[in-house]
Structure formats: structure tokens, C-alpha cells
Design a binder for these strands. Structure first.
Length: 597
RNA sequence: ACACCUAUAGCUCAGGGGAUAGAGCACCGCCCUCCGGAGGCGGGUGCGGCGGUUCGAAUCCGCCUAGGUGUGCCA
């Protein structure tokens, strides 16, 4: 019933209703376009609603209520609508047929994507996480891009696309020159700094990650005070970029040591990348690109720098040109991002590139996108998306810092959250040390990720450890708790009745049961909406509602004590599909539920 | 100076043309203590200001106020 003739494709539940409404409008002599159905904003009155009668009043020169009455009259024999009511001034209030709803849920349960229709023509999508810097520890500033990017990646994959996540490291700039210079100052005897050295460089890195993380800030601070040191670092950067053999070898060491550490840290966040590319990879494409831009007349010299104009008539402000080369001939981040697009075009031919970066970089990406299109580096069908995120603030509303005002390292933040979770878990029940630690890690991650993702990405948000780790309210742990509770009931049922997979939802149901069915049935439309808008917070809002609806149902329904076995099986089927929806959703957000907590 | 973003309950956030603007936290009361009470039910307060468009505006438009961010040789 819920299947198209092509088979397997499930319509969204509101589409069934909308189709009936459109037909009813048409049969009653009105434009079928008026039959648009939306979720009810008055759940006490109805489940879905249609406001088309009011919208059409002017066109038909008729009171909206009369139109609504005409339409309702045509809805009497409907398979999916149980009750349609015209209400002043012209709302059409709709309630779903229980049999239809139960049938829909049954089909949904059997579908691998829970009724979500995957893309007919999968796209190749690159997600660019906008560059953690090599040689610097990950700090809270990298958290959002990792979390949001990972979720967007998973959503894209779920939707059937070919998604490639690229960490896109900042591995080619001045910070490398600084590290090299500082290292040379400390250990001048190393062969990398011996210009006459021609042998094999050691395989072992001349520093540990701990040392590396200390070297960079030290060098950076020192360079600010000492002009000659800074000059040396700039020179080292230049030499590195121009193939200095010893510096290249040091660079490789920096990369290896850093990347290993980054992988570990990102791994702790359940974040992984398909590509560990960086700015360095794009360098090879720069000379040809520059040549091309000059040859085709896109670029011109302005104040000594090579630039491409990207102004447009409709601009309300001056958009500076995209700078390709500085007046000293060096490349900039505009250059690198453009060259990276060329590289991607060559290697992956993406249909879409999504940049998940701090919203303060928006202007830069406007310039890059315009320049890329103007110079035809990407074709006009390539979708370049900027997902800018806001700042993570502390409780004081200012950018998140440690107690002494320093930058909070990601590791420490995670440790702090896990510690907090561990306390809560061990306070509440006796579990083994090992299990408590493991659970704390799983639940802690949900606290961090949900705390971030439940806010609109583009806005700043307040990171509040106490609130995020709470088991009450709109939090990750609360969602996990609900899932764990369902798992527990299902496990007990399996013990009692044996596991049965043929359980079906019945049409006869209580109000809270119907409410839960209704909520679960929205899954596909929520995911579609989330994917279109690249807005994971919509999934959070949805599962929070779903968890609440479940808890209401749970509270007034004795599941394991139910004597009518068919009815009990129906409960179990409903719990099973609810669990599946919740688990699928948190997977799309990038975390998972433990068995117990 | 210019441009962009933001402004919703005491606090943290949803809602982006429709009915009575929702959650959570905090505060108060009640229920249950049964499949996990880390629950359920109820209670008070709010769309920064002024205009406009519309049958209807928290939502769209204009102006104002406040905060944040950005504005070619850092990334």
C-alpha cells in the first residue's frame, strides 16, 4: 500500500495525506495546489493540517470556511484520513487512520532505510573540515568542524551519496618554518641542518609529539619578539616550499608525528576521514593554475599582487578581489583553496564540495567560490557549499577558555567530560570499574556531540558541562537512556517469549501509542529535511520529541505484563521500530548507545 | 566608516506566513515507586523598539537600538 509501482520506494506519510487533499480540492472544483499539508501546530486538535482554504479564499471570492467544508465533504472515503474537520476561519484539521498508520509503520520496520528514499543518482560529495594545523594540538576550536562535518558526512552517506571526508590539514605554512627554525636552534648538530649532508636521514623523528607541541608555541612567541628569528623562520618556510632536502625530511617527521596524534584524537571523537590531504598536496597545482589564470586573462596585477576580480553588480558592499599571488610572489590561502579545487576536480570530480569551517571565514569562501566559477576551475553545476559554524563559548558567553585563560585542549575537554560521566555512573549503581569507564566514554561523547549538534550550526553556543552531561532534558545522555531502556525491555521480552521477528503493529491502539507511531513515522521526512538544509540539529529536535513521546507511552503502558499476546507483540514491534529510528538517528549524529548505563 | 550575522521565558535553546509561540533547566505542587523514578501530570513569566506588506507576522520588508563578526598581500 505504501509502495510505488516501481516498488520499494516509500512515500512520506504526509505525501499520502497531501495527495488525498489535493484530489479533494480538485474534486471540489479548486486548484489542487492548495492541498498542501503540514504537521499540525495544534496537536491537541489534530495531527496534520491543511491551510489551503484560507489561501484560496481570495481567488475564489469565497469564505475560507466554505471552501474547507467543500473539501472536507470530498474526504469522507479516505484510506489514510480517519477524520477531517473544517474549523473557523478555514483550517482543515486531519487525523490519521490507525490502520493506515500501523501499516505504514510495519512497512517502515522492514525497510533498510526505515522508509527513507535514498538518492536515485548518487552524487560525489567532498566534505572539507577546513584544516586543523599540523604541529599544534587540537583544541576546542577544532571540535565543531569535526562534529558537524562528521554528521554531515554520515547523513550524506545514509542518503546514498558517495561522500569523501577530507581533514585538509594546514601543513604548509609559516608554522612549519617556525618549527624548523626552533629545532635548528636547539639541535644544530642534526643532519637536516648540515647542508653538505648527503646520506640517508634518520627514520626516527628528532622529537616526540609532546615536544613538538611545545616547540611551536615557543617559536611562535619568540618570533613575535625577535625580528631576525622571524626572518629566519620565513626563510625556512621558503626553503621548505622550494624543496630544501633537509627541511623536507623534517617536515615529513612533523607530519608523521602529528598525524598519528591527530588520528588518535579524532578517533576518540568517533570522527574519521577518508582523506588526510593538506595544503601541501595542492602546491603542485599552483604554478599551472597561475599560468592559466594569467593566460586566460582572468588575473591581473594590482598593487603588485596578482588578483582576480570577483565583484558582482548586485553586491551591497565591496568584495575585495581574490588574491592569487602576493607582491613578493608567494601563494596565499586563496591560492591554496583554489588549487585544491583543481586537484579535487582532477581526482574525484565532485558534484558538491561542502566546507565546514568557522563562519568568520565566509568572505574568504565567497571570494574563492566566485573565483573558481569565473575561472571555470569548477563547472557551473558543481555545488560549492559553505557551512559556517559559530563560536563555542563558555558559561560567561565568551569564547571557551581554560580556568587560567588558556586555550582548552580537546583531549582535556574530553577527559573532563568523561570524568564527570564516570562520577554520575558510579554514583547511581555499582558496576565494574572497566564497564563504568567504557560507558562513561560512550555517554560522554554523546554529551559533547549532542550538546553541539542540538544547536543551529551557524550560531554561537554555550558549552555547559553540567547541562550537557545531565541525564535530564534535551541532552545526549537522555536520548541514550531512552534507548537503553527500550533495549532492556526487549531483552526481557526475548527471555520470556523468545525472540520473534514476525511481530506486527496492530491498528487498535491507545492515544499515547498512536502518538508514538505518528512520531516514528516522521523519520524519513525529518532526514530529508536535515539533508537538504545540512542541519543536523533537526535530527536532535526530532529524537528528543520521539524520546519524550516514547516515555509518555511507556509510562502508561504495561508492556511485559500485557496478557493479550498479539497486542503485546504489537507493543514490541513498536518498541523495535522506535529503537531502530533512535539508533539510526544517533548514528547520523556520530555517536552510539551502550548496552547498559 | 561600510557590510553581514544575532536579538524569543530568570538561564540555555527550538519554532522562519496560520489557531492559544514551544522545550529543558531553575522554582512550586501532585502521581507512581510497576517492564530501569535518570520518569509522568499540572502551575508563572516571553517574540529588543517603531512603522509597513498580508485575511493573518515571532516569521517577510524598512528604519532604529544593542551585541557579535568581517572588510587584498596571516590562515
Amino acid at each position: 500500500q505504501a509502495e510505488d509501482e516501481d516498488g520499494g520506494i516509500m512515500k512520506k506519510i504526509f505525501e499520502f495525506i497531501q495527495e488525498e487533499l489535493e484530489n479533494a480540492f480538485e474534486e471540489a472544483g479548486y486548484d489542487r495546489g492548495l492541498g498542501k499539508v503540514t504537521l499540525s501546530n495544534r496537536p491537541d486538535l489534530c495531527e496534520y493540517q491543511c491551510n489551503g482554504a484560507m489561501a484560496g479564499a481570495k481567488t475564489y471570492r469565497k469564505a475560507p470556511i466554505m471552501i474547507a467544508n467543500d473539501v472536507v465533504a470530498k474526504l469522507q472515503e479516505s484510506t489514510c484520513i480517519q477524520e477531517a474537520e473544517a474549523v473557523a476561519p478555514g483550517f482543515i484539521n486531519l487525523r490519521l487512520n490507525r490502520e493506515f498508520l500501523a501499516g505504514y509503520l510495519n512497512e517502515m520496520s522492514e525497510d533498510a532505510h526505515l522508509g527513507f528514499e535514498t538518492a536515485e543518482q548518487p552524487k560525489t560529495i567532498i566534505v572539507d573540515y577546513g584544516g586543523a594545523n599540523v604541529a599544534k594540538p587540537l583544541h576546542v576550536g577544532h571540535l565543531r568542524s569535526a562534529i558537524i562535518g562528521e554528521s554531515i558526512k554520515r547523513i550524506g552517506k545514509f542518503a546514498g551519496h558517495h561522500v569523501i571526508g577530507d581533514v585538509h590539514l594546514g601543513d604548509w605554512g609559516y608554522q612549519m618554518g617556525l618549527v624548523i627554525t626552533e629545532l635548528k636552534k636547539r639541535k644544530p648538530e642534526l643532519p637536516y641542518f648540515d647542508e653538505s649532508f648527503e646520506g640517508e636521514y634518520p627514520e626516527e623523528a628528532p622529537f616526540t609529539i609532546g615536544e613538538l607541541e611545545e616547540i611551536y608555541p615557543t617559536a611562535s612567541a619568540y618570533a613575535k619578539e625577535h625580528e631576525d628569528y622571524k626572518e629566519e623562520a620565513l626563510q625556512a618556510t621558503f626553503l621548505l616550499q622550494n624543496g630544501h632536502r633537509g627541511y623536507r625530511a623534517v617536515w615529513k617527521h612533523i607530519m608523521n608525528v602529528s598525524v598519528a596524534d591527530l588520528k588518535k584524537n579524532y578517533g576518540n571523537l568517533n570522527v574519521d576521514f577518508d582523506l588526510w590531504k593538506g595544503e601541501a598536496d595542492a602546491q603542485a597545482y599552483i604554478p599551472d593554475m597561475v599560468e592559466y589564470m594569467k593566460r586566460e586573462g582572468y588575473a591581473h596585477i594590482d598593487n603588485g599582487a596578482l588578483v582576480v576580480d570577483v565583484k558582482e553588480e548586485t553586491d551591497t558592499k565591496e568584495i575585495p578581489p581574490c588574491m592569487i599571488l602576493k607582491s613578493d610572489g608567494a601563494a596565499l590561502y586563496d591560492t591554496t583553496d583554489l588549487a585544491t579545487l583543481i586537484e579535487r576536480e582532477e581526482l574525484y570530480k565532485p558534484d558538491e564540495v561542502i566546507y565546514v569551517v568557522d563562519k568568520r571565514q565566509e568572505l574568504h569562501f565567497v571570494q574563492v567560490f566566485r573565483c573558481a566559477r569565473k575561472t571555470k576551475i569548477v563547472n557551473e553545476n558543481t555545488d560549492l557549499q559553505f557551512v559556517g559554524f559559530g563560536t563555542m563559548n563558555g558559561k560567561d558567553g565568551k569564547p571557551f577558555k581554560t580556568r587560567d585563560g588558556g586555550v582548552m585542549r580537546l583531549e582535556n575537554l574530553i577527559r573532563e567530560i568523561n570524568e564527570e560521566m564516570y562520577k554520575k555512573i558510579t554514583d547511581n549503581r555499582t558496576v565494574s570499574e572497566e564497564e563504568a569507564r567504557k560507558t562513561a566514554q560512550i555517554v560522554g561523547l554523546s554529551a559533547i556531540k549532542y550538546g553541539d549538534l542540538s544547536n543551529q550550526a551557524s550560531k554561537d553556543y554555550v558549552f555547559d558541562v553540567d547541562r550537557f552531561t545531565s541525564f535530564e532534558g534535551n541532552t545526549g545522555p537522555y536520548i541514550l537512556y531512552t534507548i537503553v531502556r527500550i533495549k532492556s525491555i526487549l531483552a526481557r521480552y526475548a527471555e520470556m517469549e523468545g525472540s520473534r521477528t514476525d511481530a506486527k503493529l496492530l491498528a487498535a491502539c491507545s492515544d499515547s501509542e498512536k502518538a508514538l507511531m505518528l512520531e516514528a513515522s516522521k523519520f524519513n521526512s525529518v532526514i530529508e529535511n536535515t539533508q537538504e538544509e545540512l542541519a543536523p540539529h533537526k535530527i536532535c529536535a526530532y529524537i528528543y520529541d520521539l524520546a519524550n513521546t516514547f516515555n509518555r507511552f511507556y509510562h502508561e503502558t504495561k508492556i511485559l505484563a500485557e496478557e493479550d499476546k498479539e497486542r503485546q507483540a504489537s507493543f514490541i514491534a513498536l518498541l523495535t521500530v522506535t529503537k531502530k529510528v533512535l539508533e539510526t538517528c544517533i548514528d547520523l549524529l556520530g555517536f552510539e548507545a551502550p548496552e547498559r548505563m
